[in-house]
């Protein structure tokens, strides 16, 4: 890995400018969203709730994160590329979440309810295959 990495990012910069602080805030916000989404993915009881946690946070998390990085890169080709990646993900992530949810619904996966939680758990792979 190059030693000429971004000094500010690695914490070796001598001065923190407003932009650095802003980028730091964006990065941290993005990352905490990512972790929250992941926790939701682990902790929530069924597919739809997990999808809610993961799918909703995903795009915003990536957006904030890329925004933070783009500030670090400054107005260069790199920021443009970051913007492109973000645009790409902006289109694809919600689309695939939507398609996945739709597929699950068509596949007969029932949403979890407090009373009928058993139904979700019975939803084993054999059931989902139909």
């Amino acid at each position: 890995m190059a030693v000429s990495g971004m000094l500010v990012l690695t914490g070796k910069g001598n001065k923190m400018t407003v932009l650095d602080i802003l980028s730091g805030i964006l990065l941290l916000a993005g990352c905490s969203l990512g972790v929250i989404g992941a926790i939701g993915l682990i902790r929530f009881p069924d597919f739809y709730t997990r999808m809610h946690a993961a799918g909703v946070t995903d795009t915003l998390c990536a957006g904030l994160f890329f925004g933070g990085l783009a500030i670090q890169f400054g107005l260069t080709l790199a920021s443009a590329k970051l913007l492109l990646i973000f645009l790409f993900m902006l289109f694809t992530c919600p689309t695939s979440s939507h398609a996945l949810a739709k597929a699950a619904r068509h596949g007969g996966l029932e949403p979890w309810t407090k009373t009928g939680s058993g139904a979700a758990h019975n939803m084993s792979q054999e059931g989902a295959k139909s």
């Binding site: 289109f91 689309t95 695939s96 939507h98 398609a99």
Partner: peptide, 15 residues
């Protein structure tokens, strides 16, 4: 039946 997927996909292919 995946209309959104189709539209987005078609839009992305040239890029």
């Amino acid at each position: 039946d995946h209309l959104i997927l189709r539209v987005v996909g078609k839009f992305l292919i040239p890029y």
